[in-house]
Design a protein around this nucleic acid. Structure first.
Length: 658
DNA sequence: ACGATTTTCAGCATC
DNA sequence: TGAAAATCGT
């Protein structure tokens, strides 16, 4: 299949900076991979090319596509997320960034915990979230603590700036960075230091940025610093699919690009190759309810396909059952692969009812995102051990593992240790290694701490000559973790599951180590960022949030919980952010190639009690002619409705026999 | 210091 | 409803 005229322009335009406004399903990924190939043809070496995405999933997808297109040329390509790029820059110039080798990358949870401890005491959660948001926003604007303090006008801004300053002091003491720092610190180096800037500008001679509408202020400046005046970049994005404003994404960056690069060329991709004409009409109708700065008119040459089904259900359990039954009926009638179907929802917690129903209906499924391997306590524990071995300053890691498994080092001992550490200006783990500190403590506590310190010292020696998986085995043996698992797991199968988690962790770490030739410190840093990389390849229905489905496509898509309060979400309604929810809904329905089902419940269990629900306003925004409503039927008619469903699906099969 | 029991509270999405 | 935190009792 060849490129259309706009796609060709997007691919071959390399003499001026380029912005590609790519509608949903318009072959965006294809353009990016073709362009990478084109750049190589035109004399760029793959090592000089940098392709940036926002999510690990997108990076993985792009890597596969690039490998298929570029073959062995894809090897030298740098293809990663903004944050992974930031991490590389930091690793390459650790000292310059004010860090020491072995620094820790805090995950969102650890970072919030640190922030919470520094915030004024007695704040309710709502205020804490607001503060976290405020601090993160300051960082996403690329401001240093001093700048933020100077710029603060209101009392609220001063509170956020003060907290930010304290928080950064704490991170510095821990030799740690958070996710926002992975952008902010490299940016500061690039902007402030001519030498660093030219070094990285020489390293990357052409930049591709995917999902450009999701960039925040700091990321935009990072892009500009790397591209420099050469303007050797292509940004690909779609403002209608901007769904990360809550993460600081600023679609304003689209216009900023045109201002900063007057010779910017803009190409619009408006032919959709994915969705049936009917689904696309519905999508266009929905997004038409938003004010738009870069209006696009998406069109599809594909046939209409079946009507969009709207399922009205009794409650969330019923909804899940019907979705499951629908998937079974579809499989019987149309055949095809389970993996060509997806169930999309607004929040991860909605997966639970679906899982139950799918299990009952014996439909194979995989849940994307949600709680991964890295959310389990045992994996977090062991990763914290590794982090503490790599970075003796990581107080967060120390506190997590110091008494797991029990070492008889309790809260009082840690309080005393904390006082001593503060006095000496040392981390907790380092203080525990000081005789002077231990002498201040009761003999029992001091002995326990000394034992732990000795263990750590031994592991640090081991880390020098052992592979990660071997080191992990040694740690597991040293702390008798299996015993701890047995003692803390209520069910025997839970013990099995946890053992398996640790086995997977070992595999993943060993895999990373081999693949990236990374040492212990780099491994823990990468893992914080990348999470679980292996995709489940089984033929199974995919359950995912709408956010997680961005960039993916499926023959059949079911969107559940299309209700006021869920989609759009309550918080979005009260905070006047329905437009982003509408874009999210637009993303959801444009994942579907051939058939689309939407469903909502009349009642739903929320926080324990059963509450009545209203259908989502987005349903009213869909063209009535494209919809086929199916109210809830009496149970005795379930078989009948199944037959109806089959007849419907048989027609569908006749339309699309591929 | 630790496990058992009661109370609270509800983050929506990701790096 | 269910998980996490706070409190209680040994």
């Amino acid at each position: 299949m060849s490129l259309n005229r706009q796609q060709l322009q997007a691919v071959t335009g390399i003499d001026t900076p380029m912005l590609v406004l790519a509608g949903a399903g318009s072959g965006k990924t294809r353009v990016v991979t073709e362009k990478l190939a084109y750049l190589v043809e035109r004399g760029f070496s793959p090592a000089q090319l940098l392709a940036i995405t926002f999510t690990n999933k997108a990076a993985r997808e792009m890597r596969e596509r690039a490998a298929a297109r570029l073959r062995d040329q894809a090897q030298g390509l740098t293809l990663c997320t903004f944050h992974a790029l930031g991490l590389r820059i930091l690793q390459a110039q650790v000292r310059h960034a004010g860090l020491r080798p072995g620094f820790s990358v805090l995950d969102a949870e650890a970072s919030f915990k640190a922030l919470k401890e520094l915030a004024p005491p007695g704040l309710d959660n709502e205020r804490l979230y607001a503060l976290r948001q405020a601090v993160s926003q300051i960082k996403n604007e690329g401001q240093a603590p001093g700048q933020a303090l100077a710029a603060a006008r209101s009392a609220g801004e001063r509170a956020a700036a003060t907290l930010y300053a304290d928080y950064q002091k704490r991170l510095a003491a821990w030799n740690a960075v958070d996710f926002d720092d992975l952008i902010r610190l490299p940016l500061a180096m690039l902007e402030d230091d001519e030498a660093v800037r030219s070094r990285w500008q020489a390293r990357f001679r052409y930049l591709m940025v995917d999902e450009y509408q999701d960039t925040n202020g700091a990321q935009y400046r990072l892009l500009r610093a790397l591209a420099g005046d050469r303007g050797a970049f292509t940004a690909v994005g779609d403002d209608d699919q901007s769904i990360y404003a809550w993460r600081g994404a600023d679609p304003e960056n689209l216009d900023r690009l045109a201002r900063d690069y007057p010779d910017l060329r803009i190409v619009k991709l408006e032919q959709n190759y994915r969705c049936s004409a009917r689904i696309l009409r519905a999508a266009n109708a929905v997004i038409g309810h938003n004010p738009r700065t870069h209006p696009k008119t998406l069109w599809s040459a594909l046939p209409d396909g079946p009507a969009i089904r709207v399922l009205v259900c009794r409650d969330d359990g019923h909804e899940a059952e019907r979705v499951a039954a629908d998937l079974v009926a579809r499989k019987e009638a149309v055949g095809g692969r389970w993996s060509d179907c997806a169930v999309l929802y607004r929040g991860n917690h909605q997966a639970r009812a679906l899982e139950q129903a799918l299990r009952l209906a014996q439909v194979p499924y995989v849940v994307a995102g949600g709680d991964s391997l890295f959310d389990s306590a045992e994996v977090k524990d062991l990763l914290a051990y590794l982090r503490l071995i790599a970075n003796p300053d990581d107080d967060g890691a120390f506190l997590r593992v110091v008494n797991t498994p029990r070492r008889e080092i309790g809260a009082t001992t840690l309080d005393r240790l904390g006082e001593q550490a503060a006095r000496l200006n040392l981390s907790l783990a380092r203080s525990a290694g000081q005789d002077g500190v231990l002498r201040q403590l009761p003999a029992r506590a001091a002995a326990a701490l000394a034992r732990f310190d000795e263990q750590l010292a031994q592991w640090r020696r081991d880390a020098g000559h052992l592979a990660v998986d071997e080191l992990l085995d040694r740690v597991l043996a040293g702390i008798d973790y299996d015993q701890h698992l047995l003692a803390t797991s209520k069910h025997p199968d839970l013990v099995q599951r946890r053992r398996r988690s640790l086995e997977s962790l070992k595999q993943i770490l060993a895999g990373f180590a081999r693949q990236r030739h990374a040492g212990l410190a780099e491994l823990t840093q990468l893992v914080a960022l990348l999470g679980d990389q292996d995709e489940d390849q089984r033929d199974a229905v995919r359950l995912t949030t709408v956010h997680g489905a961005k960039g993916l496509e499926f023959g059949h898509v079911a969107v559940v919980g299309v209700e006021e309060g869920i989609f759009p979400h309550d918080a979005a309604i009260s905070e006047d952010r329905v437009e982003e929810e509408r874009r999210l809904f637009y993303v959801a329905i444009t994942r579907a190639k051939r058939s689309l089902g939407l469903s909502y419940s009349e009642r739903r269990r929320r926080y324990g009690s059963i509450e009545p629900c209203q259908p989502s306003r987005f349903l009213d925004e869909l063209p009535l002619a494209e919809l086929h409503w199916e109210g809830r039927e009496p149970e005795r008619d379930a078989a009948h409705s199944r037959e109806l469903g089959k007849a419907h699906l048989a027609r569908l099969a006749a339309l699309f026999d591929d």
